[in-house]
Simulated scan of single mutants.
Amino acid sequence: MDSDERVCPVCGQPVETVIWRHKTLGAWVPTWVAGPCRNRACAAYVAPAGAREPEEEQPGAEKDVTADEHAPGPTA
């Protein structure tokens, strides 16, 4: 395992080290490589898994309404 700090090739910011593995002679061998860039200003930016970009609310746009909210209530 090497202790070199990995950097993004585009912006030069530090990136995390991730482990890939490949099979050699029937055994899985770990390989440490640079992970994705998390710098939002970088052209090589990759959003974290499960993260969503903030959605811009457009003026005049209506909220989604389910049919249950407009269904008539029970009559007596």
Rank of each mutant, 00 (worst) to 15 (best):
E62L: 15
Q58P: 02
V15C: 07
N39G: 11
T75N: 11
T24S: 15
G26V: 07
P72C: 09
C37V: 02
V18S: 01
T66A: 08
V65P: 05
R21E: 11
V46A: 02
A27E: 14
T24V: 15
Y45F: 13
V29H: 04
H70I: 15
A44K: 00
V7A: 04
E57Y: 06
G50H: 14
P9M: 06
T66I: 09
P72W: 04
I19E: 11
G35T: 07
A43W: 07
E57L: 12
V7P: 01
E5S: 03
A43P: 04
A76Q: 09
E57A: 13
T66C: 11
G35L: 06
A47K: 03
P14A: 09
L25V: 02
A34I: 03
A61L: 10
E55V: 15
R52G: 07
V7R: 00
E53R: 07
H70Y: 12
E53N: 07
C11V: 08
I19S: 07
A49P: 11
D4Y: 09
G73C: 04
A43G: 12
P59R: 09
E69F: 04
E62V: 15
D2L: 05
E62T: 13
P59N: 01
M1R: 11
A41P: 01
D4A: 08
T24N: 14
T66L: 06
D2V: 01
A41I: 12
R6L: 01
S3V: 08
A71M: 14
A44T: 02
V18E: 05
V65M: 10
G50P: 12
K63R: 15
E53W: 00
T66G: 14
G35I: 02
A41M: 10
R21F: 14
G73N: 05
A34M: 08
